[in-house]
Amino acid sequence: MDKYSAETFNTSALRRTEESNSSTTLQGPESVKDSRSKKSRRNNNSADEAPRKRSRVSEVAEPSTSCQDQIRTVRRAKRKMTEEGEGPLPPVKKRKKGLLELVLTKESPSSLVDNSRAKFEEKYTELHQFGEGGFGYVFAGYRKEDKLPVAIKHIPNQKVVLTHKDENGRQLALEVAVMLKLRAVTTSSVGQSSMVVLLDWYDLDQELILVMERPMSAESLFDHLKDHKGPLKQKEAKIIMKQLVEAGIHLQHANIFHRDIKAENILIETNSGVPRVYLIDFGLSCYDNRRKFELFYGTIDHIPPEFDRHGTYSAGPTTVWQLGVLLFEVLHNKMFKTSSFLQNELKIGKRLSKKCKDILTKCLTINQEERPTLEELLCHPWFS
Rank of each mutant, 00 (worst) to 15 (best):
Y4H: 03
E7F: 01
S12I: 09
L14I: 08
L14E: 10
N21V: 15
S22C: 10
S46A: 01
A47C: 14
P51A: 12
E62L: 11
E62N: 02
E62A: 06
R72Q: 12
K80N: 14
E83W: 14
G85N: 08
E86M: 14
G87W: 15
P88Y: 15
E101A: 02
L112E: 02
A118L: 07
E121F: 00
Y124M: 04
Y124P: 13
T125G: 11
G131K: 01
E132F: 05
G134V: 13
G134Y: 15
Y142I: 12
R143M: 07
N168E: 04
L172V: 14
A173G: 01
E175Q: 09
R183M: 10
A184N: 11
M195F: 05
V196H: 13
V196C: 14
Y202N: 12
V211W: 11
G230L: 07
K233N: 10
K233A: 00
A237H: 03
I240N: 02
Q243M: 08
A263I: 04
A263S: 04
T270H: 10
V277S: 14
L279V: 11
I280Y: 01
S285V: 07
C286V: 08
H302N: 04
R309Y: 14
H310R: 02
W321P: 13
L323S: 04
F328I: 00
E329L: 03
L331H: 01
H332V: 06
L342E: 01
E345Q: 00
K347D: 13
I348W: 00
K350A: 12
R351S: 13
L352G: 00
C356N: 02
L360A: 03
L360C: 06
C363P: 12
T365W: 01
E370V: 03
T373A: 02
T373F: 01
E376C: 02
H380D: 01
